[in-house]
C-alpha cells in the first residue's frame, strides 16, 4: 500500500490511525498482529517475510514480542520442512529462507531450522540439460542455464532474489559450505549484469542488456558476503561499484535501506545515504508505515 505523507496512516483491513511515536522499535512493536506476525502494512495479514525481517531487526530487544513471533513462525512450518508465505498458503516456497534465517540463532528451534535448511537444499530451480535448450538460453539471455539457483516456488526457474535469500539462510544455518550454496554462488556470478549489479536474473534479453536494480543487487551482495566470497571477483567489485552509484541517486526508503545494508556488509562507503534515509522516517518511527521496510531500514542503521 502506498501512503501519501499527507494522508493518515491507514490499513486495508481496517482504517485506523496510529499514535505518533519516535523510533522504529516502538513502531514495530505496536504494529505486531495479534497472531504474533507482521504484515507488509499495519493491520495487514501476517506474512512470513516481514515477520522474519522484524525478528532480525529486533534481535533480543523485546523478548515477549519476539517469542510470539517465533511461535507464529514455528506454527507455520509445513510437514515437508518448508514454509509457505502465510497461513493461507499450503505450499512451501521462497519464504522458507526468511524463516530459517530468522530462527537460526534460536536454540529451541534447532530442529525446525535443520528441517527448513534440508527443504532448501533439496530445492533447485528448473534444471536444463537439453543441449538445444541450453544453447537457446545462451543466445536469448546470455546465461548458462545448466547452473541452478533457487526459484520462488517449486517448479519455477531460478531467480536472483530467492537464490540470494536461500544462500543467506543456509549460511545462517551453518551450511555455507553446502554444494547447493556453492552452486548458488556460481549462479549469481553467471547472472551478473556486465555493467555491474544484478536484476531479477536476466542480464540480457535478446540483444538488449537489462539494467540492474538496487534491491536485487543488494540482496545478491549480502548473499555473496555470507558465502564468504572475496571482492576479487569482478561480479562483486562491479556490483559494489554499481550499488554505490545507484544508492547515491536512490529516492525510496526500500532502495536506500537495502543499498546501505549491502554496502555496509562490504565495508563500502554509503555517502549521505543514511542521512537521506533518516529524512524519510515518519513521525511514527516507521518508513512508509510498512513493518517490512521499517525492519530493513532499522537493520541498515546498526
Amino acid at each position: 500500500m502506498f501512503f501519501d505523507p499527507n494522508f493518515p496512516l491507514t490499513t486495508s483491513a481496517g482504517r485506523g490511525t496510529l499514535k505518533p511515536m519516535s523510533n522504529p522499535e516502538t513502531f514495530l512493536l505496536q504494529s505486531q498482529n495479534a497472531d504474533g506476525g507482521w504484515g507488509y502494512r499495519v493491520g495487514g495479514t501476517s506474512f512470513v517475510e516481514p515477520t522474519a525481517a522484524v525478528l532480525l531487526a529486533l534481535r533480543g530487544r523485546n523478548d515477549a514480542a519476539e517469542s510470539r513471533a517465533r511461535a507464529w513462525l514455528l506454527s507455520l512450518q509445513r510437514t515437508d520442512g518448508g514454509w509457505g508465505i502465510a497461513v493461507a498458503d499450503d505450499e512451501s516456497g521462497w519464504m522458507t529462507a526468511w524463516a530459517v534465517r530468522a530462527l537460526a540463532d534460536f536454540a529451541p528451534a534447532r530442529d525446525a531450522v535443520a528441517r527448513g535448511a534440508q527443504w532448501l537444499t533439496a530445492q533447485a530451480g528448473l534444471r536444463v540439460d537439453d543441449p538445444a535448450a541450453l544453447a537457446q538460453a545462451r543466445e536469448l539471455f546470455q546465461i548458462d542455464a545448466a547452473i541452478v539457483g533457487w526459484g520462488w516456488q517449486p517448479g519455477d526457474a531460478s531467480w536472483v532474489h530467492p537464490t540470494a535469500l536461500a544462500i543467506l539462510a543456509l549460511a545462517a544455518a551453518g551450511q555455507s559450505d553446502h554444494a547447493r550454496v556453492r552452486e548458488g554462488v556460481r549462479y549469481l556470478y553467471d547472472r551478473a549484469v556486465s555493467s555491474g549489479g544484478w536484476n531479477i536474473g536476466n542480464p540480457r534479453m535478446l540483444d538488449k542488456p537489462i539494467p540492474a536494480t538496487i534491491q536485487d543487487t543488494a540482496v545478491a551482495l549480502l548473499a555473496l558476503r555470507a558465502a564468504s566470497v572475496t571482492s576479487d571477483a569482478w561480479q562483486v567489485a562491479k556490483g559494489i561499484e554499481y550499488l554505490c552509484d545507484a544508492v547515491a541517486r536512490a529516492q525510496t526508503c526500500a532502495e536506500l535501506a537495502w543499498g546501505i545494508l549491502a554496502l555496509r556488509a562490504w565495508s563500502a562507503d554509503v555517502g549521505d545515504a543514511l542521512a537521506r534515509l533518516d529524512a524519510l522516517q515518519r513521525a511514527d518511527g516507521s518508513w512508509e508505515g510498512n513493518p517490512f521496510v521499517t525492519a530493513i531500514a532499522a537493520q541498515s542503521q546498526t
Binding site: M1, F2, F3, D4, N6, F7, T10, S12, A13, G39, Y40, R41, G44, T45, A86, A88, D89, F292
Partner: peptide, 15 residues
C-alpha cells in the same frame, strides 16, 4: 498526490 488517490501495491496486498 495531486488527485489524492490511494495507490495499492497488489504484490503485497492481503490475499
Amino acid at each position: 498526490a495531486r488527485e489524492r488517490v490511494e495507490f495499492v501495491d497488489l504484490n503485497y496486498d492481503d490475499l
